[in-house]
């Protein structure tokens, strides 16, 4: 039925914690998305070489200058080169995206396996997850950061907590259907140990949807970090992240809109590319999805 197009595997939609709906991009769009992502990742990795200036170097005489040789996108309110800050900012933003995806998938996988396999634990775990999912993720994240202090670790924790219930739900749903399969019954019948059943027979079923979910979490985490920084509840403002650069640009928006525009464009391209690649990965890993939701 039509509701199938809101996949549990893709319920993430970023910081907003709303549902994410499937999209079937064409191969040309996926290629463009992949190229964009490679460029963004490569420019973040090689920021030290590519950046024309030191992203932290203050130059009051150069403040809010337009683009010029050596400063292609101009400078910010402290005279720092905008392009260099965007390139370096990608490092932290992408690191948060990948880190949040890996950690939340790992924790969610463990809890989801337990919840899906042990009926006695399921009721308790799922009530806790339902409760966590009812809290708007951005409110929970800014509350965690404000109480624990703004550091990379705190921001990561604040982003990961709201993502875990979504992974748990996904893993649980996969395990619930897989545990009724004959091969699991056979494994139980021949006396396989519990860790072995979970590890060798149930967990591999979760890999495909988790890879897809991981990409959505990555995009969502990058967006949440940007929102947290933008609201003033993110990583130390001196550290260049895409969110921090935009947050600093707010006060000067009417004089120099490019301080928000350029990091916003790069952030949007990164999130769009990751989301499109997530959709393409889902189609590649589960060809049935291609037929579903097309209405044919």
């Amino acid at each position: 039925m039509a509701i199938d197009t809101i996949e549990p595997s893709s319920i993430s939609a970023g910081a907003a914690s709303g549902p994410r709906v499937s999209f079937r991009p064409s191969s040309a769009i996926i290629t463009i998305a992949a190229i964009c992502l490679i460029v963004v990742v490569a420019s973040a990795i090689f920021a030290g070489v590519l950046a024309p200036q030191d992203p932290q170097k203050l130059a009051p005489a150069m403040r809010l200058k337009p683009g010029m040789p050596g400063f292609p996108l101009g400078t910010d309110a402290y005279g720092r080169d905008l392009l260099s800050r965007i390139l370096h900012g990608g490092r932290i933003s992408l690191m948060i995206g990948v880190g949040a995806a890996i950690v939340s998938v790992t924790i969610g996988l463990t809890i989801g396996l337990v919840s899906g396999f042990f009926r006695w634990a399921d009721a308790i775990i799922m009530r806790i997850m339902d409760g966590l999912m009812a809290i708007p993720s951005i409110l929970l994240a800014i509350a965690v950061v404000s109480l624990s202090g703004a550091s990379l670790k705190t921001v990561l924790i604040a982003i990961i907590i709201p993502e875990i219930p979504r992974v748990v739900r996904l893993v649980r749903s996969v395990v619930l259907s897989a545990r009724e399969e004959p091969y699991v019954e056979a494994a139980i019948a021949i006396g396989s140990s519990l860790p072995k059943i979970l590890w060798r027979h149930l967990m591999p079923n979760t890999f495909a949807p988790l890879i897809v979910q991981g990409t959505y979490i990555c995009a969502s985490a990058i967006l949440t970090e940007a929102i947290l920084s933008f609201l003033g509840a993110g990583i130390n403002p001196e550290t260049p992240t895409w969110g921090n650069i935009m947050a600093e640009g707010r006060a000067f928006f009417q004089i120099k809109p490019s301080l928000i525009f350029w990091p916003g464009v790069v952030l949007s391209i990164a999130i769009l590319s990751i989301n499109l690649i997530g959709d393409a990965t889902r189609d590649a890993l589960d060809p049935r999805m291609k037929q579903r939701g097309t209405g044919k």
Partner: peptide, 16 residues
């Protein structure tokens, strides 16, 4: 447009 809607942060849309 709907793919863009999911990828462009609300504050970027707001400032644009």
């Amino acid at each position: 447009l709907s793919v863009l809607g999911f990828s462009v942060p609300v504050f970027v849309v707001g400032y644009v």
